[in-house]
Structure formats: C-alpha cells, structure tokens
Design a protein around this nucleic acid. Structure first.
Lengths: 120, 120
DNA sequence: ACAATAACCGAAAAAAGATTCGGCATAAGG
DNA sequence: CCTTATGCCGAATCTTTTTTCGGTTATTGT
C-alpha cells in the first residue's frame, strides 16, 4: 500500500473534512448519488471528465469513511448501488454552500483567470 | 511559467471554490489574517508546519484572486500587512462550517484511520 | 465456445502540488 | 563594511494525486 511520507494534522476540522470529501471528484460523486445516479457505470457517464479508475477509488474511500453505503446483488453482470449514509447527507448543505459561493463569484474569478492567460 | 496540461472545469462552483481557497494552507492563512496575524513573518510562525515558500505563494494567489489585500510600507526591513477583502470575508462562514463538520465527525473519522493503520 | 457486461484491482506513468535551498533588494545598527 | 531583517522569487527536487492500461471474476445471451 501507498505510504505517506509527510505527517497529517488530524486535529483541524477543515483538514479532516477535505480528507473525507476533498478529492478531485468526490463532491461530484456525492452530488450524483444524491440525484439518484447510484450505479458506478452511470456515475462514470455522468462525470465523463473523470477517469473510471479514480471514480472507483473515490467510491471505495467514501465507503470506507462511511459517507456512502453499498448494496450489491450477486447477479451478473453485477449491479451495485450506492446510497448516502446519514453522515453523507450531512455533507450536502456544505456542498451546496460551496457551490453557491463559487458560482456567485465565478465572473470575478474567471476574469482573473483570463488576465492570467493574456499575460502569457 | 507553469502550464497546465489537463483542462479545468470552471463551470462548477465547487471547483472554483477549491481553486480559490483549496490549497494546502490557504484556509489557515485566511484564519490567521482573520485573527489579526497579518504579516508574512507572523503567519509563518503561526503555521510552523507550512513551508515559508508555500505560504508566500499562497498569499500571492489569494491576492491575485482578490481574496486578500496588501498594504506595504517602504520602510526597511519591509513591513507588509495583509487584510481580508469583502470577498475574502464571505469565505469565513464556509470555513467555520467545514471546520465544524470535521470536528463533529472527527472521532468517527479517526476510528477508520486507526483501522487502516492496524491492518498494515 | 465465446463475446459482452459491470465492478474492481494492480502497477507504471504522468501531472500537479509542496518543499528545500539559495538568491536578490534595501535600509538600519553595530 | 558587515551583519541582520523582511519580503519576495526561481529552480531543482520530492511527494501526492490522478491517469492510463491492462487484467480478473462470474454470468448471460449467441
């Protein structure tokens, strides 16, 4: 297994939060599940920019931290369904607030972004 | 200058938010400034785990995105002071909410963390 | 038999992010 | 003069995260 070289600070709430749902697509995955897109295949086509492997890995992590729950029938091809746990649902308001903040300031941010491009 | 290889998705509010204040120590820096620790030297000693260089770089980014403002006298040795802009202040409630969430679930998360350690 | 499918997993490689280390500028104090 | 202090910057290096690619499993339909 991969071994971390630099120590973590588990006493900071923000650090913990970003550890649990701060990966590249974790927020999108939670959003998808919340919208009823609950099977890995469907999540992958819902987030086409994300690599399949990373979605799998992040699902596993979210499961590990008890943010989502897994239900898997033993039929083939396998049909796995994920759902948000209680803890998982408690993240939703945070996500919507972050999304709201980002969108509210998107013009502002994009302007700076373009400035950066122009200077190159 | 550094050139990004993979395209970004600037239409997602969460992505924008984490771009602006998602770096390793940006939240801590904002917290520090909010607490009145406003000079680079002092911020560095307030966050001893962070490398000086990264704090400098993240201050520059926060400044670039208009999250903080800079006031610099031309005395020597230089005395620079940063302050939160209006936009910067609008991030504070988000930070405290994330911190609250993380701390509220810290026992839960640390338990899983230990489980991971034991299995190695 | 054999292709197709869904969910996973392992490992190498690439990309992004963070650290380390040294440098510059400038003025004040010894 | 020489050291000290502060803020900043560049480049090499190292660490972490993400991507890419291929493989496994087990059943269903052809």
């Amino acid at each position: 297994m991969y071994e971390r070289k630099i120590e973590e600070n588990l006493d900071c709430g923000i650090y913990l939060a970003s550890k649990v749902f701060g990966g590249k697509w974790k927020c999108c995955i939670l959003d998808a599940i919340n919208r009823g897109i609950v099977r890995p295949v469907h999540i992958c086509s819902y987030i086409p920019d994300a690599s399949k492997r990373l979605i799998e890995m992040q699902l596993a992590e979210l499961l590990f931290y008890g943010i989502i729950e897994k239900y898997s029938e033993d039929t083939y091809p396998k049909k796995t369904e994920y759902s948000l746990s209680i803890v998982g649902k408690s993240i939703l308001p945070l996500l919507s607030q972050m999304d709201k903040w980002g969108l509210a300031h998107s013009e502002f941010i994009k302007e700076r972004q373009n400035e950066l491009q122009d200077s190159e």
